[in-house]
């Protein structure tokens, strides 16, 4: 009985640190998927988020794909190589001391959450001020990340609108970062499907003709 309990705990352990987003529905949002939007999102990520988070599967050279010029990349990377991954400047030990956890890497974060970019967008819209004056998050209760953008105190108004627009771009960039080949994949897939449909039709006609003398 003890063993089965352990087993079941392993299977279904509800750990609140892992936000599953079960209670708060994800917000409906249309994310633009063009290089311009992504670049603006990347600028926010590279100036704000990478203070604590790594983006280790994205290398400086990859930023060319979202429209950064060589000069802009040179300014961003400083002494780092073009081929170096984009890493936070804060040492992980210090971050762990401050927040209790090492902030997760952001290069796969969109894919690692059901809803992808929508999750990211919803998360940022769900910071609120608790009665005790501390900031918490509806989507991710007990989140360790501080409300760096001051969403909880923002209220409704032009500030919030601008913030939301900016977050859409961040979500769009993070979706790209988690799956940079999506566009190549879909455009190739289009031709593959066209080919397969034509070829299958040809095979269908062949099969009918071959079978014509059987029926």
């Amino acid at each position: 009985m003890k063993k089965i309990e352990i087993l079941f705990t392993l299977m279904i352990a509800p750990l609140s640190v892992w936000a599953s987003g079960g209670e708060v529905p994800l917000m409906q949002v249309d994310l633009a998927h063009d290089a311009g939007t992504r670049k603006q999102g990347a600028e926010v990520v590279l100036t704000v988020c990478t203070g604590c988070h790594n983006l280790k599967y994205i290398k400086y050279r990859d930023l060319q794909a979202v429209g950064f010029s060589q000069q802009e990349i040179d300014d961003l990377r400083g002494a780092a190589e073009m081929t170096a991954p984009i890493m936070s400047l804060s040492p992980p030990d210090m971050l762990k001391d401050t927040y209790g956890v090492v902030p997760p890497d952001l290069s796969l974060i969109a894919k690692a959450r059901a809803g992808k970019g929508r999750y990211v967008y919803t998360l940022f819209n769900n910071f609120y001020m608790r009665a005790d004056g501390n900031v918490d998050n509806h989507l991710f209760p007990g989140i360790r990340m501080p409300d760096v953008l001051g969403v909880a105190a923002m209220g409704e108004g032009p500030d919030k609108k601008a913030f939301q627009e900016s977050m859409k771009k961040v979500a769009s960039f993070l979706e790209w970062a988690s799956d940079p080949n999506a566009e190549e994949r879909e455009s190739l897939g289009f031709y593959v499907l066209i080919y397969l449909i034509i070829f299958t039709l040809m095979l269908g006609v062949m099969k009918r003709r071959i079978w014509a003398d059987v029926h």
Binding site: V192, G204, K207, W211
Partner: peptide, 25 residues
């Protein structure tokens, strides 16, 4: 052959359309 080879190939074509729709999209 040729009856069932072609029937199988046609079936394979239909399968690949569904399969590739998942793989690419």
């Amino acid at each position: 052959h040729p009856y069932f080879t072609f029937k199988d190939l046609f079936g394979l074509g239909v399968f690949l359309i569904i399969f590739c729709a998942f793989v690419f999209f």
